[in-house]
Amino acid sequence: MAETKNDLANRTPRTTSRMKRKDLTGWLIMLPTLLLFAFFVWEPLVESIRLSLYTAKGIRLEKFVGFSNYMKVLKHPDFLAAFSNTFVYILWSLIIGFLVPIIIAVLITETTHFRSFFRVGVYFPNIMPGLATVLMWGFFFRPGNTGVLNILLDKIGVAPQIWLTNPKWTIPLIVLAMTWKGAGSTALIYMAGISNINPELYEAATIDGAGILSRMRYITVPSIFSLGKTLLILQIISVFQIIYEPLVMTNGGPNNASISIMQLVYNYAFRDYNYPMAAALSVMMSIVLIILSGLYFKITASKEN
């Protein structure tokens, strides 16, 4: 035992030296990425925090005002509407956007023929540019006799509807367009999770006479439950950053019925040219997203454990 300890003592300096060289090599490899990340992420974030504490003429800082811009944001008449609408977006995204990919993944997994064709079909909307998708759905839900949906409904004798100009339907319809765009890629992730389930479980359930609903309830859903928690947090983070869908389809209307937090940041910066208030709201959103990201990493770590 004594000789072993001596050998380890003799080898320690060499091992430590090799480990230091490996660490140095690893840091040198990561250095360009770290520099780019710091320049494009951390530096703008720090500058946004700094800008939010001043008054400014354009982007030129003038006077330090502390948290005055944050108070102006909280007291702004559009903030409450944007804040509440963001949670309405989250609610509808859970009702529509969270369940639809799971249903698609289960149906395609249970399909015997043309499975690859259906996989390509559900993923196809993801390859379309986001702005083109939003414009397409805007034409589809256009009110009056020129909207595609109203033209189709007119064929069966239904009067034209106002759709996106109806405050009750604006957010659900925007979420529907978002779901059509992104459900395919999420469904593929669920399908990958379902493919890891032991097929003998499905065979045994089928032999026992279990139908698709029973197999989904007792085998599929419990097996992808941890994956669903992770994707749920990612979806909430994504919905918090929604901007171009309401901006293009409704411009936040009617009467701020669909305005989002990120669109409010856009309005402060590029409509009102009030960059300090835009920076203040951006910092507030960053804090919320950091908290949600921390929750995501905690859930992911517990899943791995």
Rank of each mutant, 00 (worst) to 15 (best):
residue 34 L to F: 11
residue 32 P to T: 06
residue 120 V to R: 09
residue 34 L to C: 11
residue 102 I to D: 01
residue 41 V to C: 11
residue 234 L to Y: 10
residue 157 G to V: 06
residue 305 N to P: 04
residue 150 N to T: 05
residue 80 L to D: 06
residue 44 P to I: 10
residue 160 P to D: 01
residue 158 V to C: 07
residue 13 P to R: 02
residue 291 I to S: 07
residue 122 V to I: 15
residue 188 L to E: 10
residue 215 R to I: 05
residue 217 R to C: 00
residue 88 V to I: 14
residue 170 T to G: 10
residue 23 D to V: 15
residue 126 N to T: 12
residue 148 V to Y: 15
residue 46 V to C: 12
residue 91 L to N: 04
residue 285 M to K: 09
residue 241 Q to L: 05
residue 46 V to G: 06
residue 3 E to V: 11
residue 27 W to K: 03
residue 255 N to S: 13
residue 208 D to A: 02
residue 152 L to K: 10
residue 133 T to D: 03
residue 172 P to T: 08
residue 28 L to K: 00
residue 194 I to G: 00
residue 253 G to F: 04
residue 124 F to H: 05
residue 256 N to M: 14
residue 146 T to L: 13
residue 266 Y to M: 09
residue 207 I to A: 00
residue 225 F to R: 14
residue 56 A to K: 09
residue 275 Y to G: 03
residue 25 T to G: 14
residue 56 A to I: 09
residue 281 L to V: 13
residue 137 W to F: 13
residue 238 S to P: 15
residue 222 P to S: 01
residue 61 L to V: 08
residue 14 R to M: 14
residue 154 D to V: 00
residue 95 I to K: 01
residue 261 I to A: 01
residue 223 S to G: 00
residue 297 F to V: 10
residue 117 F to I: 13
residue 14 R to F: 08
residue 135 L to P: 07
residue 120 V to S: 13
residue 97 G to M: 07
residue 202 Y to N: 06
residue 295 L to C: 09
residue 97 G to Y: 09
residue 231 L to M: 03
residue 32 P to F: 02
residue 202 Y to T: 00
residue 266 Y to C: 04
residue 147 G to A: 15
residue 178 M to F: 04
residue 205 A to I: 00
residue 34 L to Y: 10
residue 86 T to C: 09
residue 69 N to Q: 11
residue 224 I to E: 00
residue 90 I to L: 01
residue 133 T to F: 01
residue 263 Q to E: 11
residue 104 I to H: 08
residue 48 S to Y: 09
residue 276 P to G: 05
residue 213 L to Q: 01
residue 131 L to R: 03
residue 44 P to N: 07
residue 224 I to A: 02
residue 179 T to H: 08
residue 29 I to S: 01
residue 293 S to P: 00
residue 236 I to G: 05
residue 32 P to R: 14
residue 246 P to N: 12
residue 193 G to Y: 02
residue 268 Y to K: 09
residue 27 W to R: 06
residue 207 I to R: 00
residue 263 Q to H: 12
residue 31 L to D: 07
residue 175 V to T: 13
residue 48 S to K: 07
residue 228 G to L: 04
residue 259 I to V: 12
residue 205 A to D: 00
residue 191 M to Q: 07
residue 91 L to M: 12
residue 295 L to H: 02
residue 260 S to I: 05
residue 76 H to N: 05
residue 110 E to C: 10
residue 288 V to S: 03
residue 148 V to S: 02
residue 73 V to S: 06
residue 43 E to G: 07
residue 249 M to C: 12
residue 83 F to A: 09
residue 245 E to D: 12
residue 24 L to A: 15
residue 227 L to Q: 04
residue 50 R to M: 10
residue 164 L to R: 02
residue 6 N to Y: 05
residue 295 L to I: 11
residue 145 N to G: 08
residue 154 D to S: 15
residue 246 P to S: 11
residue 228 G to N: 14
residue 97 G to A: 12
residue 112 T to P: 09
residue 38 A to Y: 03
residue 169 W to M: 15
residue 56 A to D: 03
